[in-house]
Design a protein around this nucleic acid. Structure first.
Lengths: 162, 162
DNA sequence: GCAGAGTTACTCGGATAGTTCTTGTCCGAGTGTGTTCGG
DNA sequence: CCGAACACACTCGGACAAGAACTATCCGAGTAACTCTGC
């Protein structure tokens, strides 16, 4: 019961794309090589981001992925939802329906107190993730590590890999 | 990426145990029959609750499970942790270590901004769950459905099943 | 020299296996109860 | 009649499979650039 690895890869990759202001797109292979990740699998995650409208993809030579909108307009929750899907962490199975006195035709998801508590906790989690934009994270990183933007851009744009 | 079913089963079962003030323990089979759940699998979850000190188990005839402490002293988070384990939802794989300029010997879990955001969201989720006790849920249920305590107690204590 | 068709190489995109985790099941160790036998 | 030893039935506890989800990989569809040929 932990989030899939792809969430972390997607977040880091989006930040890196934000530092390559070159409009030329970066290929999945190159983005994967940055952290030594399996290229085909990262490609899969980037496809999910593209479907969610976070990235834009262009096929063919000189193709690749680029940000579809500014980091200011991308929340951490957007990325999490793009990778993990829209479902909540806790899904009420409506046990009350099977219990004594339960009505098989009734929908207990709104009346069950347990489902309510879990739903509120889920909401608090999402609220926290929705409150952080990738731009805010980028700014904090740049404040702490001023060399990161330049180094990242150089590494991704230069053909030579280290 | 959703919580395991056992969390829901455990929460409902703890509430039901709270309504059977009889000190005679309820067997896993009977508690499972209440919601028509697989008895052996629910037993597995109840074992986790017992290891966590939430329930107390007694083997042999007339044995079963009973609450080890009052509902006032059991938070929803306690149950979630007992079933799901102590790990956070997001585990930082420390991608920065593999990236250019990364130090293989350094621990990036505390310095990575992304890990920080995910950790704060995780904390908000846990804070919400820790703020709700099973007693509070029980009280709300009793206020809405006054017949539930009596019906639950009768069903679990009477040998005859409906 | 220039335009255009053909070829090539490169990228994403979805379909295809391998591995881990959750779900579900089974049988044995241990215990309290009821019974039986002896005093 | 009373007590103790015995056998029994019942429960938890952990070990053992089945299924689903995540992880990882491969190859084909499509595209842009490059090349070569003819004018």
């Amino acid at each position: 019961m932990k989030l899939s690895q792809g969430v972390e890869w997607a977040l880091h990759t989006c930040l890196n794309l934000g530092w390559t202001e070159v409009d030329g797109a970066a290929t999945a292979s190159r983005l994967a090589a940055f952290y030594d990740l399996p290229p085909a699998y990262l490609n899969k995650q980037l496809q999910s981001l593209a479907k969610a409208g976070i990235l834009a993809s262009t096929p063919g030579p000189r193709g690749g992925f680029r940000l579809a909108r500014r980091l200011e307009d991308i929340s951490v929750l957007d990325v999490v939802v793009a990778i993990e899907g829209r479902g909540e962490l806790f899904e009420c199975a409506q046990l009350l329906r099977e219990g004594p006195g339960g009505d098989p035709g009734k929908d207990y998801r709104d009346s069950c107190e347990i489902a309510g508590v879990m739903s509120r906790a889920d909401l608090a989690w999402r609220r926290e993730l929705a409150g952080e934009t990738l731009a805010a994270i980028r700014d904090r990183v740049e404040a702490t590590h001023p060399g990161t933007p330049g180094r990242t851009r150089d590494w991704l744009t230069n053909v030579r890999r280290d």
